[in-house]
Design a protein around this nucleic acid. Structure first.
Length: 888
RNA sequence: GCCCGCCUGGCGGAAUGGUAGACGCAGCGGACUUAAAAUCCGCAGUCCGAAGGGCGUGCCGGUUCGAGUCCGGCGGCGGGCACCA
């Protein structure tokens, strides 16, 4: 969708005669200006910083989540990187040494798909995409440290990642073990639990199957307690992200309880006891049955001799945890015929079922069923006619006649029918039950976690090779340091299904580093979330021969401000927090939390359009007219749909390249900052962009007029009323914009700058005078400096007009508000009677209360209302309000 | 089901417990122009009205001299997690 060369983006083309007739300065020509300033910034290296932060200036590390090189930058990126760039430029002007790097999250499935579908080399495809997208980023005028750029798909990066993997392995933070894994049959790979959404692969959407494979795991659970407790300290993260992570980590307190198997033969086969995890050991006397997961060893044992059981197990496995299975919520089970004894109830025994609702990877894969206190257990018991002993009496209920029908009571209450626990509350009962279990050796109190270890093995060729060699004699042997990096080979064949690394003719065949015998490389590669789990650290020393340089990493980390989408609230951010700890433990970093402040931006939305036949139309195919819309080419009516997230499938995208062509980078930047608060979704509209472009031109005219009609350094003897008013507006704006930028309220900063623009325009209406000229120059320079983080090119252009030969905006300090000019000359004070506004008075600021109250009483309308009434209280809020409380 | 967030004009949204609606978009009126574009100026929550009032931040209630803001309840919308024992 390239814009035609003659297209000036809705702004009229300027013919020679127009230009001749136009009075005052010409229009701002962003096409000439933007590339010129980008070249100036690059030439002076003003955004560069050393690996070790310089002395004497506070450091500030701004990072936006780095992009996957899909081929095209989209508006979400523009918003993300503009937000970060405003912070970077602002902090730089505030005197910080700012690290603001950019790179590429460059491994991933789309490159393999391109290779498979079109026979393109994934590396070539990826690097070409990077080339294109880098070009767009540069056109946006972002103040990035381009000398630190890297792509995770290059051995300079993934080789260091292999080093980290081996160090983690040596530190016991990596394990290889057989595991039930989520198998995506369409992508032909294993997925992490986090990548399974509603029982389907997060990319393919295919229903995930369960398989048992030998896999590499990162031991994130080793850090579960601190990953949870440290969330409290992340007070500059959005609350909801912390809540989501806390829930994901999922700490619960309960007990493991062992139930002896009554059947000797089964006990022989799978062990004498079945262990369950419960958070409610207080309700053990309410037991009705024991249920194990279909994947539980006991289920396998039973299935081996019982075809009906085997069929049930197979059925559970195929259904898995797919959405449909969960949605139907049907509790189904199979009675194994086995029975278990009860730790507190000698002589009693309970049936063992295989049940579809029991999860193998939570707790022990087995539960004891207590129907009276758990809805799921109750449904199950009712369905299969199992007993429902009542052991919890809800508050206010009489024991006589209390029964559970079809609603379980999982709240607090008093224990009954529970032997030695009778009469206890649920907390006391739990403590007493655990104490008894431990005394009897039948169980123990435990803390359980929902978080699972992170399986990182992927049967993918376009990823970071896991640096291990499998030797028939020595087992899994780490690749020695001097053989790193383990490079991906050229000439991978993606025509065959499965892992192209695995069926590469030579790559995997090597000799064992330990015994020298014939061995094979690990052909699995790392989950791409590994690549993005430490890139922020690598940016501090991107060319180092070790994963990090401690002086650089210690100097720059943590990231002071991280900016990205909420979709990474759990996976990426949790993995990065884990990696930071693991790198700390292995000596690569000196801290635990990578991101001090986190900002999650909203999405960029756009209207959707459909043709008469229901097919989606791109915005540029549509002509809007009032409430309706028509096709540009045919004039036929178009249906205007909902405002939705920009997506290729709905064709409601606007290309950043096209927008920069038409309006320039500054306009695009200004628009994404101006309307909506950055944490909320915004709607991209043509009118909005045009409005942003108008403001840029207005600013240009205003400031160019000042540059033309005034000279720098005209020092006046004093400031008259008009000049003083403008100066106060200028300094109030400095304070307000600074505060807005500090608080990520960029839309408010924009509004304040509009106001100062208005004040400057108003001042132009007064007769020229040295004091006013000086005030106008001050306002104009201030506008340049305040807008520089947001519209950096225009700011440079205008500053150069005002002060030819002066320093660039990018090199200038942030303006300081003069405290003496922040106070208003007079204040409007609202006067209330009984809390209702009845008039306003003008007063000098900071007058004594008596004076202000007297003036308020004299306000005619107020005086009328107070007449004949007794004032019982006078409230005075300095410079704001007076409120009279009257009797009766 | 559980957890979290949000709800203010036609629209996006401002508003340390202190004049609700800043600023912008769309709209309307005017100036300039042969005309249009661009630009500039002005109007603008709603109802009654002369002054001045009434009603207004999803709904109900509370705290307060004063509530969009704090507290309790309800409703709607959005999001997250979801057979977690």
């Amino acid at each position: 969708m390239p814009a035609a060369p003659a297209d000036t983006g809705g702004l009229p083309a300027m013919s020679g005669t127009d230009a001749a007739r136009a009075e005052g300065p010409a229009r701002y020509d962003f096409r000439a200006s933007e590339p010129r300033w980008q070249a100036e910034w690059e030439a002076c290296g003003c955004f560069d910083v050393p690996d070790v932060p310089p002395e004497g200036r506070p450091k500030y590390y701004v990072l936006e989540m780095f992009p996957y090189p899909s081929g095209q930058l989209h508006m979400g990126h523009v918003r993300n990187y503009t937000l970060g760039d405003v912070v970077a430029r602002y902090k730089r002007a505030r005197g910080h040494a700012v690290l603001h790097p950019m790179g590429w999250d460059a491994f991933g499935l789309p490159a393999e798909n391109a290779a498979r579908e079109r026979g393109i080399d994934p590396a070539a495809w990826t690097l070409a995409n990077i080339e294109t997208m880098r070009g767009t980023l540069k056109r946006l005028g972002l103040s990035l440290n381009w000398d630190r750029e890297f792509a995770t798909c290059l051995p300079e990066y993934y080789g260091q990642q292999q080093k980290l993997f081996l160090d983690f392995l040596a530190a016991g933070l990596v394990e290889r073990r057989d595991a039930l894994v989520n198998w995506d049959p369409v992508d032909g790979t294993v997925l992490a639990n986090e990548q399974v959404v509603d029982g389907r692969g997060w990319r393919s959407g295919a229903v995930v199957e369960t398989r048992r494979l030998s896999q590499w795991f990162l031991r994130i659970t080793a850090f579960a307690p601190e990953l949870l407790s440290a969330l409290e300290g992340l007070d500059a993260w959005p609350e909801r992200v912390r809540v989501m992570q806390a829930h994901w980590i999922g700490r619960s307190e309960g007990a493991r309880v062992r139930f002896p198997l009554v059947d000797a033969q089964a006990a022989e086969a799978v062990g004498p006891e079945v262990e369950v995890y419960t958070t409610r050991p207080d309700t053990l006397f309410g037991m009705s049955f024991l249920a194990v997961a279909a994947e539980h060893p006991l289920a396998a044992h039973v299935a081996a001799a019982d075809p009906a059981a085997a069929a049930f197990v197979a059925e559970c496995r195929s259904l898995g945890t797919s959405e449909a299975a969960v949605e139907s919520a049907e509790k189904r089970g199979y009675d194994t015929g086995l029975r278990v004894a009860h730790p507190f109830m000698p002589g009693e025994s309970f049936p063992v079922w295989i049940a579809n609702f029991v999860l193998m990877d939570y707790g022990t894969g087995a539960v004891f069923g207590c129907p009276c206190g758990d809805q799921r257990d109750l449904d199950f018991a009712r369905k299969y006619g199992l007993p429902v002993p009542v052991v919890v009496l809800p508050p206010g209920q009489e024991a006589d006649g209390f029964a559970v029908d079809n609603v379980a009571h999982d709240g607090p209450g008093t224990l009954i029918n529970s032997g030695f626990l009778d009469g206890l509350s649920f907390e006391d009962g739990r403590r007493a039950a655990i104490k008894r279990l431990e005394a009897d050796g039948a169980g123990r109190g435990v803390v359980n976690w929902r978080l699972r270890d992170w399986g990182i093995s992927r049967q993918r060729a376009w990823g970071c090779p896991i640096p291990v060699i499998h030797c028939p004699d020595c087992g899994a042997v780490p690749v020695p340091d001097d053989q790193l990096p383990v490079r991906l080979p050229d000439g991978l064949d993606f025509a065959r299904p499965g892992n192209a690394l695995d069926h590469h003719p030579t790559w995997k065949h090597v000799s064992c580093p330990r015994c020298g015998g014939a061995a094979t490389r690990e052909t699995d590669t790392c989950d791409t979330f590994v690549d993005s789990s430490w890139y922020f650290a690598r940016f501090t020393a991107p060319h180092a021969a070790t994963p990090t340089l401690r002086a650089a990493a210690d100097g720059w980390l943590p990231v002071d401000q991280y900016v990205g989408g909420i979709e990474h609230a759990i996976l990426h951010l949790l993995y990065a927090r884990f990696f930071t700890r693991a790198m700390h433990r292995t000596g690569h970093l000196g801290l635990d939390e990578p991101f001090r402040r986190l900002f999650t931006q909203g999405m960029v939305n756009h209207e959707t359009f459909r043709d008469a036949d229901g097919s989606w139309l791109y915005p540029e195919q549509v002509e809007r007219s009032g409430h309706g819309a028509t096709r540009r080419d045919t004039g036929t009516p178009v249906q205007v749909g909902r405002v939705e997230k920009m997506s290729k499938s709905k064709r409601n995208t606007v290309s950043p390249e096209a927008i920069i062509d038409r309006y320039g980078a500054d306009t695009a930047r200004w628009f994404v900052l101006s309307d909506s608060p950055p944490e909320r979704d915004m709607e991209w509209t043509e009118a909005g962009v045009a409005g942003a472009a108008r403001f840029g031109q207005r600013l240009f005219r205003l400031v160019a007029a000042v540059a033309e009609s005034t000279r720098p350094g005209d020092a006046p003897a004093g400031f008259g009323e008009a000049a003083d008013a403008l100066r106060r507006a200028t300094h109030r704006t400095i304070a307000a914009v600074s505060e807005a930028l500090d608080g990520f309220a960029f839309n408010v900063a924009v509004a304040r700058m509009h106001e100062l623009g208005g004040a400057l325009a108003e001042a132009a209406g007064h007769e020229a005078a040295p004091d006013l000229d000086r005030a106008r120059r001050e306002a104009a320079v201030t506008l340049c400096l305040l807008s520089a983080p947001m519209m950096p090119h225009l700011a440079e252009e205008l500053l150069a007009l005002l002060e030819p030969g002066g320093a660039m905006a990018a090199l200038r300090p942030w303006p300081e508000a003069d405290a003496a000019l922040l106070a208003a000359r007079s204040v409007t004070i609202a006067v209330q009677v009984m809390g209702r506004l009845r008039g306003t008075i003008e007063a000098l600021p900071d007058q004594p209360a008596d004076t202000v109250i007297a003036a308020a009483e004299a306000e005619p309308n107020v005086a009328r209302l107070l007449e004949g009434r007794r004032v019982v209280k006078r409230i005075h809020v300095p410079n704001r309000i007076v409120n009279f409380v009257v009797a009766g």
